[in-house]
Protein backbone atom coordinates (compact mmCIF):
# COMPACT_ATOMS: atom_id res chain seq x y z
CA UNK A 1 0.00 0.00 0.00
CA UNK A 2 1.26 3.42 -0.82
CA UNK A 3 2.12 5.31 2.32
CA UNK A 4 -0.05 8.33 2.65
CA UNK A 5 -0.14 11.25 4.93
CA UNK A 6 -3.44 11.90 6.58
CA UNK A 7 -5.17 14.71 4.86
CA UNK A 8 -4.95 17.04 7.79
CA UNK A 9 -1.20 17.18 7.34
CA UNK A 10 -1.38 18.37 3.80
CA UNK A 11 -0.58 22.03 4.18
CA UNK A 12 3.13 21.41 3.95
CA UNK A 13 4.95 23.51 6.45
CA UNK A 14 1.59 24.40 7.97
CA UNK A 15 2.47 28.03 8.24
CA UNK A 16 -0.44 30.40 7.76
CA UNK A 17 -0.77 31.06 4.10
CA UNK A 18 -0.21 34.71 3.56
CA UNK A 19 0.71 34.49 -0.10
CA UNK A 20 -2.80 33.68 -1.19
CA UNK A 21 -1.54 30.45 -2.75
CA UNK A 22 -2.51 27.13 -1.28
CA UNK A 23 -2.43 23.58 -2.49
CA UNK A 24 -5.90 22.31 -3.30
CA UNK A 25 -6.17 18.64 -4.30
CA UNK A 26 -9.52 19.23 -5.97
CA UNK A 27 -7.81 21.38 -8.57
CA UNK A 28 -5.63 18.41 -9.52
CA UNK A 29 -8.71 16.24 -9.82
CA UNK A 30 -10.41 18.86 -12.00
CA UNK A 31 -7.27 19.13 -14.14
CA UNK A 32 -7.20 15.34 -14.61
CA UNK A 33 -10.90 15.24 -15.52
CA UNK A 34 -10.46 18.12 -17.95
CA UNK A 35 -7.56 16.31 -19.62
CA UNK A 36 -9.71 13.21 -20.11
CA UNK A 37 -12.53 15.32 -21.43
CA UNK A 38 -10.24 16.91 -24.01
CA UNK A 39 -9.03 13.44 -25.04
CA UNK A 40 -12.57 12.12 -25.27
CA UNK A 41 -13.94 15.00 -27.30
CA UNK A 42 -11.00 15.22 -29.71
CA UNK A 43 -10.01 11.60 -30.08
CA UNK A 44 -13.07 9.42 -29.73
CA UNK A 45 -16.33 9.09 -31.59
CA UNK A 46 -19.59 9.43 -29.66
CA UNK A 47 -18.08 11.76 -27.06
CA UNK A 48 -20.10 14.55 -25.41
CA UNK A 49 -20.97 17.61 -27.49
CA UNK A 50 -19.71 21.03 -26.46
CA UNK A 51 -23.28 22.26 -25.73
CA UNK A 52 -23.71 19.24 -23.45
CA UNK A 53 -20.54 20.03 -21.52
CA UNK A 54 -21.46 23.73 -21.30
CA UNK A 55 -25.01 22.95 -20.11
CA UNK A 56 -23.80 20.49 -17.48
CA UNK A 57 -21.25 22.92 -16.08
CA UNK A 58 -23.62 25.90 -16.12
CA UNK A 59 -26.48 24.00 -14.51
CA UNK A 60 -24.23 22.49 -11.85
CA UNK A 61 -22.90 25.96 -10.99
CA UNK A 62 -26.35 27.50 -10.77
CA UNK A 63 -27.58 24.65 -8.56
CA UNK A 64 -24.50 25.01 -6.36
CA UNK A 65 -25.14 28.75 -6.03
CA UNK A 66 -28.72 28.01 -5.02
CA UNK A 67 -27.58 25.33 -2.58
CA UNK A 68 -25.04 27.59 -0.88
CA UNK A 69 -27.60 30.40 -0.69
CA UNK A 70 -30.39 28.26 0.77
CA UNK A 71 -28.20 26.41 3.24
CA UNK A 72 -26.12 29.50 4.01
CA UNK A 73 -22.94 27.61 3.30
CA UNK A 74 -19.81 28.55 1.40
CA UNK A 75 -19.96 28.14 -2.36
CA UNK A 76 -18.26 24.87 -3.31
CA UNK A 77 -17.65 25.53 -6.99
CA UNK A 78 -14.85 22.97 -7.31
CA UNK A 79 -17.08 20.14 -6.21
CA UNK A 80 -19.84 21.26 -8.58
CA UNK A 81 -17.40 21.56 -11.47
CA UNK A 82 -15.93 18.15 -10.74
CA UNK A 83 -19.42 16.59 -10.79
CA UNK A 84 -20.23 18.30 -14.08
CA UNK A 85 -16.98 17.03 -15.60
CA UNK A 86 -17.70 13.47 -14.43
CA UNK A 87 -21.15 13.67 -16.00
CA UNK A 88 -19.62 14.97 -19.23
CA UNK A 89 -17.21 12.05 -19.30
CA UNK A 90 -19.78 9.34 -18.69
CA UNK A 91 -23.34 10.36 -19.40
CA UNK A 92 -24.60 10.17 -22.97
CA UNK A 93 -27.98 11.49 -24.02
CA UNK A 94 -29.24 13.53 -26.93
CA UNK A 95 -31.93 15.20 -24.82
CA UNK A 96 -30.79 18.63 -23.52
CA UNK A 97 -33.42 18.52 -20.76
CA UNK A 98 -31.66 15.50 -19.37
CA UNK A 99 -28.32 17.35 -19.33
CA UNK A 100 -30.00 19.89 -17.06
CA UNK A 101 -31.69 17.16 -15.02
CA UNK A 102 -28.41 15.29 -14.55
CA UNK A 103 -26.54 18.31 -13.19
CA UNK A 104 -29.50 19.20 -10.97
CA UNK A 105 -29.78 15.65 -9.60
CA UNK A 106 -26.07 15.54 -8.84
CA UNK A 107 -26.06 18.73 -6.78
CA UNK A 108 -29.45 18.02 -5.20
CA UNK A 109 -28.37 14.55 -4.07
CA UNK A 110 -25.31 16.09 -2.47
CA UNK A 111 -27.41 18.62 -0.59
CA UNK A 112 -30.37 16.44 0.35
CA UNK A 113 -29.30 12.81 0.71
CA UNK A 114 -27.00 13.02 3.67
CA UNK A 115 -25.94 10.87 6.58
CA UNK A 116 -23.41 11.41 9.32
CA UNK A 117 -22.49 14.89 8.14
CA UNK A 118 -21.61 13.84 4.61
CA UNK A 119 -23.51 13.06 1.44
CA UNK A 120 -24.40 9.44 0.89
CA UNK A 121 -23.87 9.09 -2.85
CA UNK A 122 -21.28 10.28 -5.25
CA UNK A 123 -23.28 13.05 -6.94
CA UNK A 124 -22.57 12.16 -10.58
CA UNK A 125 -22.93 8.40 -10.08
CA UNK A 126 -26.28 9.01 -8.40
CA UNK A 127 -27.47 11.25 -11.25
CA UNK A 128 -26.51 8.73 -13.96
CA UNK A 129 -28.06 5.76 -12.17
CA UNK A 130 -31.22 7.74 -11.44
CA UNK A 131 -31.60 8.68 -15.13
CA UNK A 132 -30.76 5.15 -16.31
CA UNK A 133 -33.54 3.80 -14.11
CA UNK A 134 -36.16 6.43 -14.80
CA UNK A 135 -35.72 7.28 -18.49
CA UNK A 136 -34.91 5.30 -21.61
CA UNK A 137 -32.89 8.09 -23.16
CA UNK A 138 -29.50 7.90 -21.49
CA UNK A 139 -26.63 5.50 -21.84
CA UNK A 140 -22.98 5.07 -20.99
CA UNK A 141 -20.46 3.66 -23.42
CA UNK A 142 -18.02 1.56 -21.43
CA UNK A 143 -16.12 0.35 -24.49
CA UNK A 144 -15.38 3.64 -26.12
CA UNK A 145 -12.13 4.50 -24.39
CA UNK A 146 -9.94 1.77 -25.80
CA UNK A 147 -6.70 0.47 -24.37
CA UNK A 148 -4.51 3.53 -24.90
CA UNK A 149 -6.73 5.90 -22.99
CA UNK A 150 -7.18 3.24 -20.34
CA UNK A 151 -3.45 3.10 -19.72
CA UNK A 152 -3.16 6.89 -19.61
CA UNK A 153 -6.26 6.94 -17.44
CA UNK A 154 -5.05 4.46 -14.85
CA UNK A 155 -1.68 6.16 -14.58
CA UNK A 156 -3.29 9.60 -14.50
CA UNK A 157 -5.94 8.73 -11.96
CA UNK A 158 -3.63 6.98 -9.55
CA UNK A 159 -1.05 9.69 -10.07
CA UNK A 160 -3.56 12.41 -9.32
CA UNK A 161 -4.76 10.57 -6.22
CA UNK A 162 -1.24 10.14 -4.93
CA UNK A 163 -0.48 13.78 -5.64
CA UNK A 164 -3.55 14.95 -3.86
CA UNK A 165 -2.85 12.65 -0.93
CA UNK A 166 -6.51 12.50 -0.09
CA UNK A 167 -6.06 9.19 1.66
CA UNK A 168 -8.46 7.49 -0.69
CA UNK A 169 -5.94 5.70 -2.90
CA UNK A 170 -6.67 2.68 -0.72
CA UNK A 171 -10.15 2.50 -2.23
CA UNK A 172 -8.81 2.74 -5.79
CA UNK A 173 -6.24 0.04 -5.22
CA UNK A 174 -8.69 -2.10 -3.24
CA UNK A 175 -11.30 -1.86 -5.98
CA UNK A 176 -8.90 -2.52 -8.86
CA UNK A 177 -7.25 -5.42 -7.07
CA UNK A 178 -10.62 -6.94 -6.19
CA UNK A 179 -12.01 -6.48 -9.66
CA UNK A 180 -8.92 -7.91 -11.37
CA UNK A 181 -8.83 -10.85 -8.97
CA UNK A 182 -12.41 -11.73 -9.88
CA UNK A 183 -11.66 -11.46 -13.60
CA UNK A 184 -8.65 -13.74 -13.21
CA UNK A 185 -10.68 -16.18 -11.14
CA UNK A 186 -13.39 -16.22 -13.83
CA UNK A 187 -10.79 -16.87 -16.55
CA UNK A 188 -9.27 -19.66 -14.49
CA UNK A 189 -12.70 -21.21 -13.88
CA UNK A 190 -13.65 -21.06 -17.57
CA UNK A 191 -10.22 -22.17 -18.75
CA UNK A 192 -9.75 -18.95 -20.69
CA UNK A 193 -6.34 -17.60 -21.71
CA UNK A 194 -4.84 -14.73 -19.68
CA UNK A 195 -5.39 -12.37 -22.57
CA UNK A 196 -9.10 -12.31 -21.73
CA UNK A 197 -9.03 -10.90 -18.16
CA UNK A 198 -6.26 -8.57 -19.24
CA UNK A 199 -8.40 -7.29 -22.06
CA UNK A 200 -11.47 -7.08 -19.84
CA UNK A 201 -9.81 -4.85 -17.30
CA UNK A 202 -8.22 -2.69 -19.99
CA UNK A 203 -11.28 -2.15 -22.08
CA UNK A 204 -13.44 -1.29 -19.13
CA UNK A 205 -12.99 2.44 -19.64
CA UNK A 206 -15.79 2.90 -17.20
CA UNK A 207 -13.43 1.77 -14.49
CA UNK A 208 -11.18 4.80 -14.84
CA UNK A 209 -13.91 7.29 -14.50
CA UNK A 210 -15.64 5.34 -11.80
CA UNK A 211 -12.38 5.58 -9.92
CA UNK A 212 -12.91 9.31 -9.61
CA UNK A 213 -16.30 8.56 -8.14
CA UNK A 214 -15.40 5.56 -6.03
CA UNK A 215 -12.61 7.52 -4.37
CA UNK A 216 -14.78 10.56 -3.65
CA UNK A 217 -13.67 11.27 -0.07
CA UNK A 218 -16.95 12.91 0.86
CA UNK A 219 -19.09 9.85 0.23
CA UNK A 220 -16.87 6.97 1.33
CA UNK A 221 -16.31 5.32 4.72
CA UNK A 222 -14.11 7.10 7.21
CA UNK A 223 -11.87 4.26 8.33
CA UNK A 224 -9.43 2.37 6.17
CA UNK A 225 -11.05 -0.97 7.07
CA UNK A 226 -14.43 0.44 6.12
CA UNK A 227 -13.06 1.72 2.84
CA UNK A 228 -11.45 -1.58 1.91
CA UNK A 229 -14.68 -3.46 2.62
CA UNK A 230 -16.51 -0.81 0.59
CA UNK A 231 -14.09 -1.24 -2.35
CA UNK A 232 -14.22 -5.03 -2.24
CA UNK A 233 -18.03 -5.04 -2.09
CA UNK A 234 -18.25 -2.77 -5.15
CA UNK A 235 -15.85 -5.04 -7.05
CA UNK A 236 -17.89 -8.16 -6.23
CA UNK A 237 -21.25 -6.59 -7.03
CA UNK A 238 -19.98 -4.95 -10.23
CA UNK A 239 -18.57 -8.28 -11.41
CA UNK A 240 -21.85 -10.06 -10.75
CA UNK A 241 -23.87 -7.35 -12.49
CA UNK A 242 -21.58 -7.32 -15.52
CA UNK A 243 -21.19 -11.04 -16.05
CA UNK A 244 -24.12 -12.74 -14.41
CA UNK A 245 -26.88 -10.25 -15.08
CA UNK A 246 -25.34 -8.70 -18.18
CA UNK A 247 -25.82 -5.15 -16.87
CA UNK A 248 -23.40 -3.06 -18.90
CA UNK A 249 -23.36 -0.17 -16.39
CA UNK A 250 -22.67 -2.59 -13.51
CA UNK A 251 -19.85 -0.54 -11.96
CA UNK A 252 -22.07 2.52 -11.51
CA UNK A 253 -24.99 0.55 -10.08
CA UNK A 254 -22.62 -1.22 -7.70
CA UNK A 255 -21.16 2.07 -6.47
CA UNK A 256 -24.58 3.57 -5.76
CA UNK A 257 -25.93 0.43 -4.10
CA UNK A 258 -22.91 -0.14 -1.87
CA UNK A 259 -22.85 3.56 -0.92
CA UNK A 260 -26.12 2.91 0.95
CA UNK A 261 -24.04 0.92 3.44
CA UNK A 262 -21.50 3.67 4.13
CA UNK A 263 -23.30 4.79 7.36
CA UNK A 264 -23.27 1.19 8.58
CA UNK A 265 -19.56 0.82 7.77
CA UNK A 266 -18.85 4.09 9.59
CA UNK A 267 -20.70 2.81 12.64
CA UNK A 268 -18.92 -0.53 12.61
CA UNK A 269 -15.49 0.92 11.86
CA UNK A 270 -15.36 4.48 13.16
CA UNK A 271 -12.78 6.86 11.78
CA UNK A 272 -12.20 10.53 11.24
CA UNK A 273 -14.55 12.18 8.82
CA UNK A 274 -12.86 13.68 5.82
CA UNK A 275 -12.66 17.39 5.18
CA UNK A 276 -11.06 18.95 2.17
CA UNK A 277 -8.01 20.95 3.26
CA UNK A 278 -8.62 24.62 3.70
CA UNK A 279 -6.08 27.36 3.28
CA UNK A 280 -3.56 27.03 6.05
CA UNK A 281 -4.44 28.76 9.24
CA UNK A 282 -8.16 28.30 8.75
Amino acid sequence: MIGLQPITRIPVGAAPDTSGFHFDPRLIQIAAQTTFLVLVTTWLDFGPSLPQIATLITTAMICELARSHVRREALNWKSALSSALSLSLLLRTANPLLWVAAAFLAIASKALIRSGGKHLFNPSAFAIVFLLLTTDQVWVSPGQWGTTIWLIGIAGTLGALVLTRVARVDIAIGFLTGFLTLLIYRAWYLGDPWSIPLHQIQSGGLLIFSLFMITDPRSTPNSRTGRLIFAAAIAVLAHALLFRWQVREGVLYALVLISCFTPLLDRLFPGHSFAWPRPAGV
Binding site: L44, F46, S141, G143, Q144, H199, G204, R248
Partner: peptide, 14 residues
Amino acid sequence: KRGRVETVNYPTVK
Protein backbone atom coordinates in the same frame (compact mmCIF):
# COMPACT_ATOMS: atom_id res chain seq x y z
CA LYS B 1 -36.28 -0.81 -31.18
CA ARG B 2 -34.49 2.08 -29.53
CA GLY B 3 -31.32 2.97 -31.39
CA ARG B 4 -27.71 2.35 -32.32
CA VAL B 5 -25.88 -0.79 -31.25
CA GLU B 6 -22.26 -0.64 -30.13
CA THR B 7 -19.68 -2.98 -28.69
CA VAL B 8 -18.94 -2.50 -25.00
CA ASN B 9 -15.64 -4.36 -24.85
CA TYR B 10 -14.13 -2.83 -28.00
CA PRO B 11 -14.39 0.80 -29.10
CA THR B 12 -16.88 1.53 -31.86
CA VAL B 13 -15.41 3.89 -34.44
CA LYS B 14 -17.21 5.72 -37.23
